[in-house]
Each structure stands twice: as C-alpha cells, then as structure tokens.
Design a binder for these strands. Structure first.
Length: 257
DNA sequence: AAGGTCGCCAACCGCTACGTA
DNA sequence: CTACGTAGCGGTTGGCGACCT
C-alpha cells in the first residue's frame, strides 16, 4: 500500500509566516538541505504542513531569489516567453534566474496583462485585438478580392495602426529605418501639427510589407508568428515612457496600405 | 478623520504526474 | 497492477497598505 499521510492537518498553522518560523525553516534547510518536506516541519519544530514549508522556501526564503522590481529586460523576456509558452509560469521562471513562478504569475496578472489590454493587445494570443478596430475599410476591399489579406500582414498592419495612435513619429522612423516607407518625411518633434497629414506622405507597398517588414520582425525574435506583435508591442511601451502624444481621432488603416 | 475602493502579493487550494509500497 | 503519497504546478483568495471620496 501507499505511504503514511504527509501530515495531519489538525492543529497545523495556516496563514502568514512569522519571522521566527522563517528562521526555523531557513536554519533547518541550510543544515539538512531542501527536500523530504513531509518530515521537515516536525524536525524543524514547525506547526506547518510540508507543503506550506516547501512553498515558503521556494517562493520566499530561498537565498538565490532576486527581489524587487522587474527590469525592462526581464519584462520583455516574460512577454516573449508567454507568447510562446502561455501560462507555463514555472517554465518561464526557469528562464529568469532568481524569479519564482509565483512572482512572475503575480506580476503578469497585476501589471503586464493590464498594460497589454490597454494597448489593444490580447494578452492570451498576443495579437492585436481586432474587435477594437474598424475593419470595415478592409473587408470587401481590393485586398480581400486579391487574396492578399494574409493574417500576418493584417496583424502587422493592425499593430502599426495601434502604434500610430500611440506614437506616429516612431512609426515613421520604424518604417523608414526598415525601408518600408521610401518617402523623405521630415522628422518633427512630438506634438506635430497633423499626424494624419504626415502619414499620407508615406507610401507602404504590400511588397515592402511582406518582403521587408515581416522578415525584419522575425529575425529579431527567436519565435515566429505571434512574436511579430510582441516586438512592436514593446516598441510602444519603450516610446510611451519617453514621449507624450496626441492621439488623432481620424485614423484609418488605409493610411498604411 | 473615517469609510470605501483598489492594487499588490503571499499563501492556499485543487488538480495532475510520477514514484513507491 | 493498484492504491496512495509526494512534489509541482496553475488558479484563486484574502489580508494589507495606499489612495480616494
């Protein structure tokens, strides 16, 4: 038959750990090592179940845990890994030294997820939320009739549209740097007089989008498909932190196509 | 100043895969 | 092979502090 029960739950303490309990647990693990959580509480003199001890150790007391704010690089890594792995918090934590799955999960749910939603990006699929866009100008257009509505291209165009709302100047720079937009548009300071006029000076051909943009996005990422939105999504954040912009109300995706 | 609301995060709950008797 | 314990994982909860009204 099986083993004896791991612990008798009657009389065991629950709730927040006291400093005294932390010391007992830390001292015991430092001497005897982590593991065998079933007998650990008794030997360490703790009125806790082994599971509670294991969680306390792995999520809080472990000496290699890095505490404090997540860096921009860590945040980028989390978003990128989440776009590939989904809610596999332990797998994500395994690639972020010093961070626990619980910490990453909390950070995702309280910060990153909300911010992605705010920027019009679905936190589950990491794709732009099409329901937030007026796609009437696309559906039924020549794009469709010519079978050129490839999902990646549409996804990229949508992302650029969102990005334009956030930061039109950056969109221009991005397009020009990657030879997607050939026109010589003057770089101007933020709070430009008319963002929409500026954009109409740019011509972005479908050939350029498929031949230049998508490979550019991919070669800057270890992942495929969904990562295209991720890369640009980060650009939104990066520039948001630097600049403030007016958001034009007369946006149309045709500005990009 | 007091009560209400919100956000953060540590800890718990429940489930699953795997190991062991 | 079966039954059960253990470890690990992801989802959820609840306490607490900060902020708002």
């Amino acid at each position: 038959m099986g083993r004896t029960p791991c612990c008798d739950k009657n009389g065991l303490k629950k709730g927040p750990w006291t400093p005294e309990e932390d010391v007992k647990l830390s001292n015991y693990v430092q001497i005897h090592g982590a593991g065998n959580w079933r007998i650990l509480p008794k030997k360490a003199g703790l009125q806790r179940c082994g599971k509670s001890c294991r969680l306390r150790w792995t999520n809080y007391l472990r000496p290699d845990i890095k505490r404090g704010r997540f860096s921009f690089e860590e945040e980028e890594t989390i978003i990128q890994l989440h776009s590939v792995l989904g809610n596999k918090w332990s797998a994500i934590a395994g690639r972020l030294p010093g961070r626990t799955d619980n910490e990453i999960k909390n950070y995702w749910n309280t910060r990153i997820r909300k911010r992605l939603v705010r920027n019009g990006i679905d936190p589950v699929t990491h794709a732009p939320r099409l329901d937030l866009l007026d796609l009437s100008s696309i559906i039924g257009s020549t794009l469709c009739s010519q079978s050129l509505l490839n999902p990646q291209l549409l996804s990229l165009a949508n992302t650029l549209l969102l990005l334009k709302q956030e930061n039109p100047e950056m969109v221009l720079q991005y397009l020009q740097q990657n030879q997607i937009c050939n026109s010589q548009v003057q770089h101007q300071a933020p709070m430009i007089q008319s963002q929409s006029n500026m954009m109409t000076n740019c011509s972005i051909s479908r050939e350029n989008l498929t031949a230049s943009t998508v490979p550019f996005v991919y070669e800057n990422s270890a992942y495929s498909n969904s990562s295209s939105t991720f890369i640009i999504g980060n650009e939104i954040e990066r520039f948001n932190s630097l600049l403030e912009f007016e958001i034009p109300e007369d946006l149309n995706i045709n500005d990009f196509l």
